[in-house]
């Protein structure tokens, strides 16, 4: 798969069926400091969690915390979807949750620091509005952690 236009018709139709109007008036937070001073959190919708955490349900808008010091190789996924490749994730969790890459950016001084907690959702089977409440919860947690910006990865 390279472009959406290259996908089989039923797959293309499914993904395009998710074409939804904007969620509301544009939201925009201006940059207040350079990247090298920012505290960054990672959020993935790959349904990742630490091994002992409760897995995600069939449809589930809740989130799981992933401590910054967690061993990336210990993360697993309970994402419901059967429609994405898991072989790459089996090889390297950074493919969907680039925690090692961001640790390298932190060590190099390219970013200020990493959040103490990162977060994971399972993006499947629900309309975007279903995530509003849990996203609001995470926003509060991120502010307490003095996070300036979030790097989001889908699956």
């Amino acid at each position: 798969m390279v472009r959406l236009s290259d996908l089989p018709e039923h797959e293309r139709a499914h993904l395009l069926s998710k074409e939804l109007p904007p969620l509301g008036p544009p939201a925009w937070t201006p940059q207040a400091k350079p990247l090298a001073e920012m505290r960054i959190a990672l959020i993935t919708t790959a349904g990742l969690h630490v091994r002992d955490d409760t897995g995600f349900g069939f449809t589930d808008s809740s989130f799981r915390p992933i401590p910054n010091e967690a061993n990336a190789d210990g993360l697993i996924t309970s994402h419901s979807s059967a429609n994405f490749d898991r072989s790459g994730l089996a090889e390297d969790v950074n493919l969907v949750f680039p925690i090692d890459r961001f640790r390298e950016l932190e060590s190099a001084g390219s970013i200020g620091s990493l959040a103490s907690i990162h977060y994971s959702f399972m993006g499947a089977g629900l309309l975007p509005q279903a995530y509003e409440a849990s996203a609001g919860q995470v926003a509060g947690l991120l502010k307490k952690d003095r996070v300036d910006a979030v790097f989001l990865t889908p699956v």
């Binding site: 959406l4 993904l15 395009l16 998710k18 074409e19 939804l20 109007p21 904007p22 969620l23 509301g24 939201a27 925009w28 937070t29 940059q31 920012m38 959020i43 919708t45 959702f121 993006g123 975007p128 509005q129 995530y131 509003e132 996203a135 609001g136 995470v138 926003a139 509060g140 991120l142 502010k143 996070v147 300036d148 910006a149 979030v150 790097f151 989001l152 990865t153 889908p154 699956v155």
Partner: peptide
Amino acid sequence: MSALGYFLERADIMTTGISLVRENAASL
């Protein structure tokens, strides 16, 4: 993913991220 970016930004947290389906990001 697009929705989380929107909701977090609305709460005054900057976001950037990756989209795998361009049409969905263009609409949301």
